[in-house]
Amino acid sequence: MTMSDIGLWSVPLAMLGGAIRVSTPFIFVSLGEAITERSGRINLGLEGTLVFGAMAAYAVAVETGSAWTGVVAAMLAGAGFGLLHAWICSFPKVNDIAVGIALMLFGIGLAFFFGKPYIQPAAPRLPAIPFGAWSDLPQIQAALSINVLFLAGIALAVALWWCFKNTRAGLIVRVVGDSAEAARAMGLNPTTVRLIATAVGGAFAAVGGAYLSLYYPGSWNERLSSGQGLMAVALVIFARWNPLGCLAAALLFGAAGALGPALQSAGVTQGYYLFYAAPYVLTLAIMIATSSPGRALAGAPGELSITR
């Protein structure tokens, strides 16, 4: 046995690595959804935006040879999807949830259609920063090889949290999300604010997709997303519309997702299907534990179609 055999220690290490590797799409999609919902709209189409963003990023990266150009392309495409959603929803009596589901299917279908020629070619990958270089253990080096987008996601979560609290722009989004009447009385146009918020949210979600196709797992195919976009929408409710909460929830979700493979690799082979359900069980458990009939959905924006 070699130096690199670290036995059961590989489990917490893999969970740490998993939290860093797997959580990034969740961070971006849930932050995007948090902005959208704070402005009073629900965009369930982010799964479609994620998949389309993944395809767009991969395709552009293959064509231009630059992963970063791919990320920018994904952001533009995501903003486009967000604008489309917001535009359709700006008409009276349009149900944003139904539009979201339609756009989800549209985004996925469009991504499959345009993505066909890009399943085979290999695109350049996004760079990672080797924070683990101090260690001799390859496992630690691998776990701490951190992608720039992950760091950007953390910075973004903190920045959003601060903006919502302290800036005029944050206040405008919150007012529009809590009461459209109050916003109009202030001279704000809720439709414009929601248009911008949904577009920004779409752009963030598409970055999550770009991470999937350009870094981890780092290839485009039609089975790339396994519902990350939808789960992230649920994480926003779980995080009570707080960007820092979104970050924590995404990390927790990523770590729990790494539990299954890590335990099997360490020799725990019974009931791996159960371990694979760990993230979902965890979400359910925390939702139940933190819910109470007295203060249901604390922090929910007042204008959401589910709370209105």
Partner: peptide, 9 residues
């Protein structure tokens, strides 16, 4: 895809 990458890691 993601689970396969996790498993390989």
């Amino acid at each position: 895809a993601v689970k396969e990458a996790e498993a390989t890691n």
